[in-house]
Amino acid sequence: MCIFWPPRLVLAMLVPILVTSEYEYLGWKDLGDSYGKSPQCMDIPEDLRLCYTVGYHRMLLPNLLEHETMAEVKQQAGSWVPLVHKRCHSGTQVFLCSLFAPVCLDRPIYPCRKLCESVRDSCTPIMEAFGFPWPEMLNCSKFPQDDLCISTNTTDMPPSPDDSPACPPCENEMSPEVILEHMCASEFAIKTKIKEAKIENLDKKLILQKRRKTVSGNLNKEELKKLVLYLKNGADCPCQQLENLGNTYLIMGRKAGKRYLLTGIHKWDKSSKEVKKALKKLKSHKCPVYETVFK
């Protein structure tokens, strides 16, 4: 039995259902010491950005990912906010929040495997563009197929072209928030011009001009000198910033295997208040720790 979201008090009316031994649902009170701390129902705080607008206001802690403190939930959940903003699937927020901030019931209700697979298949290309794999903690085989679970009415619907940017690193919204998200998903940022952009297999390869200035990160002189960036799976995707190679850009990237991936590119304009604000905010901004989640 699937629960189509938003639940709107329907969850509270559900009666106990017999389930198979393959995936047993236990009441919260039955979880005992094996679950850790006794579960508590509490308000979803406003600074839990991933789930504050999900459609309900109370959540259980510990959650279904075994996070026992709100501080841990916020740190881990913060890593996923940029993915929701990419709109790779309409059910991304529902799927993630069913685990990070489960709705208050007398038993844990997990997301349906079909929902997990749909979100995974739609969003993995976006994540891979930034050098992150789909994490093992969200292995879809862990979730139920036919039992009581959370789904959405749009599970089988792929994102529309308007909802899913073809080249996530090329998102051209010049706002401090977007620039900060790209900076946080990156290991370094440099100021430079692009000499050439060419196709290599399914990727787009960026050859940089010799003059390069480090803005953030820890690239050494030799790495900076030899730096070549790849726009993963970007052979055919549009990237407005690469249409005029005469401009100076703030270019962000991270190492994935033996390659350096482009994770963000924004035009560097001396009069750009957005870039200046983003760089100023970066000094005090606390980025999500992606490496603790995407591994």
Rank of each mutant, 00 (worst) to 15 (best):
I199Y: 02
I126E: 03
Y110G: 00
K267G: 05
E274I: 09
A12G: 15
V103D: 04
I251C: 01
S160I: 08
E200D: 14
T152W: 02
S216T: 12
E177I: 13
S118E: 03
S79V: 12
S79M: 11
A166G: 10
E181Y: 10
S21L: 06
K273C: 14
D43Y: 05
E243Q: 12
N63F: 12
I190M: 03
A77Y: 00
C170W: 01
G55W: 07
P144A: 03
E46W: 08
G78I: 04
G234D: 01
G246I: 07
K280D: 07
C104M: 10
C123V: 01
L250R: 00
Y23D: 01
E117Y: 09
F132W: 13
D47N: 12
C88E: 01
S21E: 08
L61F: 11
N63D: 12
R254E: 00
N247V: 08
L231A: 05
F132Q: 03
I3E: 00
S160C: 10
L99V: 05
S272A: 09
M252D: 04
Q75Y: 07
E181I: 04
P39N: 06
V10S: 13
L105A: 07
K281I: 11
L115C: 04
S98M: 07
V15M: 12
K276F: 12
W28G: 02
L48H: 08
K74Y: 05
L115S: 02
G36Y: 05
W268F: 15
I44F: 05
R212H: 05
Q240D: 09
R212T: 07
S151P: 03
S186W: 01
V10H: 14
E117M: 12
L105R: 09
L83V: 11
K204Q: 14
V215R: 03
W28A: 03
D236S: 15
L148T: 04
A129M: 14
V81Y: 09
